[in-house]
């Protein structure tokens, strides 16, 4: 018989996985300098023809080479969001506040990071909460979070 009763239980799926955990990423010229700075509790930007960008990325959006500069803040929330659910709609244990935070001595960009505060708003002044020096590894997570200044 050509026609066959079809049931979803009869569908076979072949499992597969990708080796996505086995990469190393080269930080590059500015990336390495930023990593070193983070270990020292400092943040770098780059000077471009139209202003200072954070983080430094070796070259500017207009294609010209960027010049490393230190940025010191004060830091301000440019925009923010509260993540309540994961991609599948499962609630997170606690909503997470994430923000784009820009130091006043930069013109573009900033750091994307967590904010811990009772409330959060655009323009709010915040400061980085650094890990103890011995626990730092040159990653963005050397800043644990930003908190009200």
């Amino acid at each position: 018989m050509a026609w066959k009763r079809w049931r979803i239980e009869e569908v076979i799926h072949y499992p597969g996985s990708q080796e996505v955990e086995k990469y190393v990423y080269t930080p590059g010229i500015h990336g390495l300098e930023l990593a070193k700075a983070l270990r020292e509790g400092r943040v770098l930007g780059m000077k471009c023809p139209d202003g200072v960008y954070v983080p430094p990325k070796t070259y500017c959006p207009d294609g010209s080479p960027g010049e490393l500069v230190e940025v010191r803040g004060p830091w301000r929330v440019v925009t923010y969001t509260l993540v309540h659910q994961d991609i599948y709609g499962n609630p997170l244990p606690e909503p997470e506040a994430l923000a784009l935070i820009r130091p006043d001595d930069a013109d573009y960009g900033g750091l994307i990071h967590r904010v811990r505060a009772e409330s959060i708003y655009i323009g709010m002044e915040v400061k980085p909460r650094w890990k103890p020096p011995k626990q730092r590894s040159g990653q963005i997570t050397d800043i644990e979070y930003f908190e009200p200044a």
Partner: peptide
């Protein structure tokens, strides 16, 4: 979620492990 997470900048964003890799849409909406 793992693929979207892998799409985030490996140096300066992905290490934060945001609870939902689509969070940048919230930053734009606000």
């Amino acid at each position: 979620d793992g693929i979207y997470e892998l799409a985030l900048d490996p140096l300066h964003v992905r290490p934060l492990r945001p609870g939902n890799p689509l969070f940048t849409a919230g930053l734009d909406a606000v």
